[in-house]
């Protein structure tokens, strides 16, 4: 009979944590790249582009992340694309992350007074110049805090990848739970590890928020 010592449990959980971190990073990078592109497209003020982005956001904010993962994992293969659990997890988390980030960033740009655009245009600045020197520096300052705050949601979202069989922290938690039959111990440890990953980010986001709000 296999015996799991506390050390074995912790060792395996910490090992799995690496995958949670890696998946979070990949999703965050993927999500923010897509969101950045969409935010840039939004600035063109083209009506069709706007409604397409609106639809994208509605679709991915309006359906459960779990469903998106199932669809990416089993659906895409049905349509003839091979995809691994890892690929499906990254893909669906990228959709999820970008749909929320594009909304958050839109809010940040919209908080800047419209007058700034007009004033800069009057000064003879081009669209890109306005963006580069006037809008972005301010928008980024406003955006950092909620973006860091949202990264916590991404980390927590990766837990759902366990359901499509990607072996990360939650999955290893359920596997260990089955091997040890000690759900209380295992899930407490899993929760503590997630907390240690997320809390510093939450805290940092709050500090940033105070800092930028204070200086305004």
């Amino acid at each position: 009979m296999i015996e799991f010592s506390n050390y074995d449990i912790l060792r395996n959980l910490l090992f799995a944590t690496q995958w949670t971190i890696l998946l979070s990073l990949a999703a965050f990078i993927g999500g923010s790249s897509v969101a950045l592109t969409l935010t840039a497209l939004r600035l063109t003020r083209n009506k069709v582009v706007h409604s397409l982005i609106r639809g994208y956001v509605e679709l991915f904010q309006g359906t459960p992340l779990l469903m998106q993962m199932f669809l990416c994992f089993f659906g895409l293969s049905m349509l003839g694309y091979e995809i691994s659990a890892w690929g499906a997890a990254i893909l669906s988390l990228t959709f999820f992350t970008s749909a929320f980030l594009v909304e958050i960033w839109r809010g940040c740009i919209d908080t800047l007074p419209k007058g700034q655009w007009e004033a800069s245009r009057c000064l003879g600045m081009s669209f890109l110049q306005i963006l580069r020197y006037i809008i972005l520096p301010q928008a980024i300052r406003v955006a950092v805090a909620p973006t860091v705050g949202f990264s916590v949601q991404v980390i927590k979202g990766t837990a759902l990848a366990s359901v499509i069989g990607f072996v990360e922290l939650t999955k290893v938690g359920t596997m260990l739970n089955n091997a040890t039959f000690e759900p209380f111990k295992v899930f407490t440890l899993v929760a503590i590890i997630y907390f240690l990953l997320c809390y510093p980010l939450s805290l940092y986001s709050k500090v940033l928020e105070k800092k930028f709000n204070g200086s305004r």
Binding site: A159, T174, V190, A191, Y194
Partner: peptide, 20 residues
């Protein structure tokens, strides 16, 4: 505590952990 842990872990904890 709640905001910094995944919902699925909270759920498993309540359903499987609390009977202990």
């Amino acid at each position: 505590l709640i905001r910094n842990t995944p919902f699925i872990v909270q759920l498993f904890f309540i359903f499987f952990g609390l009977p202990a």
